[in-house]
Design a protein around this nucleic acid. Structure first.
Lengths: 126, 126
DNA sequence: TAAGTGTACTATATGATTTAGTACACTGTC
DNA sequence: GACAGTGTACTAAATCATATAGTACACTTA
């Protein structure tokens, strides 16, 4: 399903969260899709079930998943998701910080603009 | 000098690193400026000297500072900094991820473009 | 010499992370 | 009802990162 980096400074459950988020946002996992059960995914990536459960709980808190007791966990439908203003504000701050850092590392405004417009087009056609 | 959030999930030394990076990138701290000594900053923000030292060490590793034994730690001059390709690649990845996440949280391509162009102008004039 | 630097080291306490194991309530199917 | 498969909630233990406390040393400047 995805790869873990045990040497990473990121904790395992965070890596699981990020990986699943990426799969959702890339459209690989679609709304109403059923995720592997906690125990199954834990076997697949050879991690403790508690760790997977922690990741799923976090993903549910962020609105990416919902769970039906006794059935499993599923990808949230877009219409069901509430626009998270706090999350958006946080993302804006991160973006500001990121641009600042690109600048500090020697990238010119024009370069940054090109890079971003490329990224926007690339994803806009997916 | 700056504020710490002890309730944050970010560790203290990481907050110190981020704060100083921001001050440098915003131009508040300029090249050759002398930073507070490890012991002094530790008194100012009421944190253990070891914690400040850890932050300084990390900032030096990232190229923001340099230290002169017996004298203190100083802000690196731009001409002295080597363009860090690994760092830039990492920043590009982060940017891609960030845009993806903005999209997923309901922001349209046009909105994102506006937001980013605003940010680019804002910083470009500073 | 003295005070102020960075640096290194040990020791300790705390918290997050991860694993292990058990248990319970729910849903579906046989 | 029985059963297997779900999510969920615990306790317990091991490990690691973080943070504090304290000491010590080499260097620079005055």
């Amino acid at each position: 399903m995805f790869q873990l980096d045990l040497k990473s400074r990121k904790s395992i459950y965070e890596q699981v969260v990020d990986n699943i988020k990426s799969l959702v946002m890339a459209g690989v996992l679609k709304p109403k899709d059923k995720l592997p059960s906690v125990r199954e995914l834990s076997r697949i990536i050879t991690v403790n079930p508690n760790t997977v459960q922690k990741a799923y709980r976090e993903l549910e808190r962020q609105g990416y998943l919902y769970t039906v007791l006794g059935l499993g966990t599923f990808i949230t439908e877009q219409s069901e998701r509430k626009p998270d203003e706090d999350k958006l504000n946080d993302l804006r701050k991160q973006l500001r910080q990121l641009i600042q850092e690109l600048r500090y590392n020697g990238m010119e405004t024009a370069e940054i603009r090109c890079l971003i417009l490329d990224l926007l087009n690339e994803k806009g056609q997916a």
